[in-house]
């Protein structure tokens, strides 16, 4: 789906390359974490996939297209097969939730009846059913990110790129976002996610590609985040400072009720879709996306609130363990 062949990217002449001989192959339907310190080339990687940048050397193939030779008028069609989610959500503040998602379809000229059916569908999937008329500033961070994901996914792209989607969110809300991304991954969408969030990476047990000063230093099929100290060497024991967004005072141990509600709604939507077997969004009645099997079983048994409480407890246990 995405193939990098010896890709090199130098932004300014004479500067250290942002990417240096990167060769990565991401198969269709894979879920890949891109980890590494700030400046290791994660964002450049994503920008190259979007063809916001062109490689200085080497070749980038995305969805069967060679991006080094693609003509600029074909770039829009490439981007229609890619959804993108950012740390800062990038929603339009003067548009409602519904309009924000519909915008993505309007500007690529989708007919109105398609928009009328797809947008509510995708909003239900992300758990924002009933909040169509809200504006972004009336939503919690988690909900805003769900809108952004809905917007990225509404056109059913083959690839979803996420640049630190949980960077601005508290751990529990992040977890909800990760479940959503996982659910999208199960529909066959290739997901590439750049992140600093070690908990998430360790819990998901997905492929991990680690970049360091522009080169791939690790590529494990079922990987963990790795040692924070080696990935984020200059920061040492306080990696929080290195993760943009993490340093915001908005870190809450207790997630916003709205986030929990959205998570519950999304979960229910997924279960409904699974139960009906009509779910175009969730074809496989999947095991819960994150956590261990034990936690997954628990998640099945308890209502979502309890799951969240349990997850919270486990989170704090894990953190206490690491810090102690």
């Amino acid at each position: 789906m995405i193939r990098f062949e010896n890709v090199e990217k130098v932004y300014a002449r004479g500067a250290r390359p942002a990417l240096d001989g990167v060769t990565v192959d991401v198969a269709r339907g894979e879920f890949v974490f891109l980890v590494g310190a700030s400046g290791s080339g994660k964002s450049t990687f994503l920008r190259l996939v979007l063809r916001e940048e062109r490689p200085t050397a080497g070749r980038v193939y995305v969805a069967g297209r060679d991006l080094s030779t693609i003509s600029s008028w074909k770039v829009p069609s490439l981007r229609r097969s890619i959804g993108v989610v950012f740390q800062d959500f990038r929603l339009l503040p003067n548009k409602t939730v519904y309009e924000n998602v519909a915008f993505a379809l309007q500007v690529i000229g989708r007919p109105r009846h398609v928009i009328k059916t797809t947008v509510p569908e995708v909003l239900e999937m992300v758990g924002l059913d009933g909040k169509e008329k809200r504006r972004p500033h009336e939503l919690s961070g988690g909900e805003q990110q769900r809108v952004a994901i809905a917007r990225a996914f509404v056109n059913r792209p083959q690839i979803l790129l996420a640049d630190e989607p949980t960077g601005n969110l508290d751990p529990t809300t992040s977890l909800g976002i990760m479940r959503l991304l996982d659910r999208i991954n199960r529909t066959g969408t290739t997901v590439v996610m750049a992140t600093h969030d070690d908990e998430i990476v360790n819990e998901m047990r997905k492929r991990v590609v680690e970049l360091k000063t522009g080169t791939v230093v690790r590529d494990e099929a079922v990987g963990s985040y790795g040692e924070r100290e080696s990935i984020l060497p200059t920061i040492g024991g306080t990696p929080v400072l290195d993760a943009p967004g993490r340093n915001q005072p908005a870190i809450r141990v207790t997630p916003e009720p709205a986030d929990l509600e959205a998570e519950r709604a999304a979960e229910e939507a997924a279960e409904r879709a699974a139960a009906e077997h009509a779910g175009p969004l969730v074809p496989v009645p999947a095991e819960p996306p994150v956590r261990t099997r034990r936690a997954a079983a628990a998640a099945r048994r308890y209502p979502a609130d309890d799951v969240v409480q349990q997850v919270l407890a486990e989170n704090s246990r894990a953190r206490a363990g690491r810090e102690g």
């Binding site: 069609s77 229609r80 500007v107 917007r151």
Partner: peptide, 8 residues
């Protein structure tokens, strides 16, 4: 956003 979602 228009550019990102592939507007011509």
């Amino acid at each position: 956003i228009m550019r990102l979602v592939g507007a011509s």
